[in-house]
Design a protein around this nucleic acid. Structure first.
Ligand code: FES
Ligand code: FES
Lengths: 152, 152
DNA sequence: TATATTCCTGACTAGATTTGTCAAGAATAG
DNA sequence: CTATTCTTGACAAATCTAGTCAGGAATATA
């Protein structure tokens, strides 16, 4: 079970995108700048998110990315699944054969842990997380950005 | 959030130790052999478990390791804490400063995930897991071993 | 006392993974 | 036409994992 910066960056960037739920495309450089994520790295991650039909892209001036569907229909678990490939906690990749070909003593434990984590992540949408990230929590840059949207 | 083979090996080895809840010390080579874990590697992990007061060791012939307390008083979470040092899911190590010095949009999400996982792991004792790892699940070597204990 | 057993400690290594970077190209708005 | 932005593939440094190894210390037993 490895949740790396890949997953964390991807979720953060998409939260930023969801916070600004307009019809415009947002360039990667904007997201990367606001969220302190290395641009070319985020670009790499966005490839996976596009393949997973979470993002829509558009090239050229005024191009960029936007969410493929409303922010309440995109689950954190879907984002993480798209970019992380080692979230499974079992030692046997689910095959139940890691102790001399049979289930080891801990197999059911890791399976339960998987279920616990996946349920948590699949239950929460981008919107759910934004609701919970209260105004006072987000940093000043984001506050200003939010105000800009609200008043703009 | 990184759950590696360190944590998995440690838990598996301690489950084996708990399955055989006698007063004798069990040498590492026995555990490593039964659970298909590289002996010297497991030895390294057991240092941490001894430091965390989960294991008691004894040197010399008939030496080895045993649990420091009854198997229902040792939680999986304690074992994992002892050997894993990157279980924290936040990007900021809990300091709430990963987005230009302030909490990022996802901070509360990772905090909640931490809580979810820690609760799950701290709720489950070695005994709980053994109860759940039903007889038909464990492999033949362990079945035989169990029978040996039961009838011996 | 001698010996075999077992833990104890620290250092070391190979390989995998993560975390990026970079360059060249394609699409497109204005 | 040109500047902007995504697209793709390759590359590289740093870190971490997973495992090895050698020498030493304690101890049960004969
Ligand atoms: S984790 Fe599945 S058999 Fe061990
Ligand atoms: S994870 Fe804590 S501030 Fe970003």
């Amino acid at each position: 079970m490895h949740l790396t910066t890949k997953g964390k960056y991807a979720v953060t960037a998409l939260l930023d995108l969801a916070l600004n739920e307009t019809n415009d495309f947002v360039p990667i450089s904007d997201l990367a700048g606001r969220q302190s994520i290395p641009g070319p790295y985020l670009e790499q991650l966005f490839r996976y998110l596009r393949k997973a039909d979470i993002l829509i892209s558009h090239r050229g001036p005024r191009g960029g990315y936007k969410l493929s569907r409303p922010r309440n229909e995109i689950k954190i678990g879907q984002i993480i699944s798209a970019v992380e490939d080692r979230m499974d906690a079992t030692q046997c990749s689910g095959e139940g054969n890691c102790s001399a070909g049979s289930k080891c003593l801990a197999h059911n434990l890791w399976t339960d842990l998987n279920y616990q984590v996946q349920s948590f992540l699949m239950d929460k949408s981008l919107e759910d997380v934004l609701k919970n990230a209260t105004y006072k929590d987000v940093n000043k840059k984001q506050k200003n950005y939010k105000l800009l949207i609200a008043t703009g």
